[in-house]
Design a protein around this nucleic acid. Structure first.
Lengths: 197, 197
DNA sequence: GGGGCCATGTAACCCGTTACATGATTGA
DNA sequence: TCAATCATGTAACGGGTTACATGGCCCC
């Protein structure tokens, strides 16, 4: 399931331009589970056009590039339902925040705090964005996904706030004691400490 | 922050082979926030070797390829701390499950249920995996990340269980009524219904 | 006998990100 | 005057996934 599929999905709500589709990803209803920028959306639409999954009509505007309005075709719809009814891959997650926290002992304590608070702020921001999205009369699926996002960001925020003080204290304590090795301490050959799975 | 960086991170716990490093990703402490397979780990280690971030010694074995044991160098450690202390990109998430749920009205009700329960089971499995990982005397950062994972999977499981009945009922009701259009209904040009952000 | 564990890699491909290129209008 | 909104794209690059290639040992 790639960006193209999601674009076709957006078009089930009605015709749209690439620019409008992007709104679904950026601070839109997809933002918490799928990311895509113009660099993937425009090529995806071109590809979909070549495969007859969409058709396109242009509207000329002054001072701006022509608006290209895409519509889903029957083939596109069939492709979409095929993808949707097939197997879904597992979630793909990549959190550099958690990487940084995992290896926090190699980061200065004040930087850890900065990173932590920055992430928490982002989390809160995402929550606000989701809240601002229309939760009105939408199909059950869309509603579930929206509630999922709200629940998740809320839950993460709660967790981080609940663990913040102790965590940052522990980090300071660890970094104050020896062998934390932020700097240029020797890299010992076969350390085992802290390496248990 | 790529797979190479994570590999260097693993090597701060002591020397390891590519195979052993994979254990950190697959059902290991990284599994809930970073995915990587052999196809990215081995090339990453080769690259790290070429950049002198690691050194490597071989141990011959019979019946198997030589075991290649990697060790972090001072340069590698410096690179790692640089990455860790720099800016972290935002979380990248791609959940095909949520895509499917968002567009659930194009999926047969019984399939929706199957997908839902499958995801829930995966979630529970992930929880069990995390619980089985050693939560013993590890640095604060590792502990936080582990607790984060436990909290998250627990929270998602709770949410899904709490919404399951109503959601599946609603899905059935929607699909039973008209204009759900799983099949080959006409693709109307400029529908707006359900398309609100 | 079969599956899982150990153990390595590479080549092709695909997809996505980043940077570049353009530019008028509107509101703060 | 500056930033944001509207509006499109491409070229180069990078990274990761998939599939292929090999094979013995051990436990059920």
């Amino acid at each position: 399931m790639d960006v193209k599929t999601l674009c076709l999905g957006v078009l089930t709500f009605g015709d749209a331009t690439g620019y409008e589709i992007k709104g679904y990803f950026e601070d839109g209803p997809f933002s918490h589970f799928f990311q895509a920028g113009y660099g993937s959306i425009y090529p995806a639409l071109s590809k979909a056009l070549g495969e007859n999954y969409v058709v396109c009509r242009s509207e000329s505007q002054d001072g701006r590039p022509d608006k290209k309005i895409y519509s889903l075709t029957a083939e596109g719809k069939a492709y979409l339902t095929g993808e949707l009814n097939g197997e879904q891959a597992g979630d793909k997650i990549r959190s550099e925040f958690l990487v940084a926290m995992f290896f926090a002992k190699f980061i200065e304590a004040q930087t850890v705090e900065k990173i932590f608070d920055h992430y928490l702020a982002e989390c809160d921001r995402n929550l606000e964005v989701m809240k601002s999205l229309d939760g009105g009369k939408v199909p059950a699926g869309q509603l579930l996904v929206r509630k999922f996002g709200l629940h998740l960001y809320g839950s993460i925020g709660d967790f981080l706030r609940g663990n913040r003080e102790k965590f940052l204290d522990d980090i300071k304590a660890e970094n104050a004691s020896t062998n934390n090795s932020i700097g240029r301490s020797p890299v010992t050959g076969t350390a085992t400490e802290g390496g248990s799975l």
